[in-house]
Design a protein around this nucleic acid. Sequence first.
DNA 1: CGGAATCCATAAAGATACTG
DNA 2: CAGTATCTTTATGGATTCCG
Lengths: 132, 132
Amino acid sequence: MTDYLRKEVKNKLINGDYSCAKEFTLSMFSGKWKIVILYHLGIDGIYRFGELKRLLPQASNKMLTKQLREMEADGIISRTIYPEIPVRVDYSITDLGQSLIPIIVAMYEWGEERLKSMKQDVKFSINEEAIK
Amino acid sequence: MTDYLRKEVKNKLINGDYSCAKEFTLSMFSGKWKIVILYHLGIDGIYRFGELKRLLPQASNKMLTKQLREMEADGIISRTIYPEIPVRVDYSITDLGQSLIPIIVAMYEWGEERLKSMKQDVKFSINEEAIK
DNA sequence: CGGAATCCATAAAGATACTG
DNA sequence: CAGTATCTTTATGGATTCCG
């Protein structure tokens, strides 16, 4: 629903409907790979395109590029081109992006807690029906 | 990417890969309508199916039901059936779901701030290319 | 009332090949 | 190196009809 979410948020912005603040925030990091990329850029610092590819081997060029471009357009990461040969491109988080990190950390902590209690709960078993 | 996210999280859980805590949290509320439903149940209290439909006129039966079932399976909302005729079904947030509300509130606040500063920024204009 | 089942259009993601 | 372009496959969401 990621792309849908971005389109909806865009439409709501155009119509002056700013009542969707939480969806707007959600749209910042709810794309495929976005939250992971943002977290890494926020914690580790600068990454080059190829480094991100190695970090996320499952991500295709197309998807990775798309996510990076969208996050750049949203102002939460920045892209720097060094016109060397071969060309080099650095990605880093912006101040705006950094301001999202506390939320992502809170999500990380909530997830850790939840997974811990699920493991401890003997009654918990992975139910295909329930999760699917 | 919502369904993809749930599938991935499921696979990672099955494989014991619990390193994806933030994605796991994200998968709790990143479905279509989920964050809105959760927020309303968290703030307003109990809703019936029909009330949620009226709250979200754009949501189809299928989608609304799907989101509700998934959130129920995740343990963040609960569903109570009253075998009256016609049948009545109540939805409410669980304690676990309530524990997500602070994160959603933080997202709401971030979004409000961001939208405010975007409005104040004279240079900001809605750029079709940038958002699409 | 609160859904379930089905069909269908569209959109999103993967694979592959190619380029400045 | 850091992407684009294109094609194909798959997933997702909408509309409609029906049911206990």
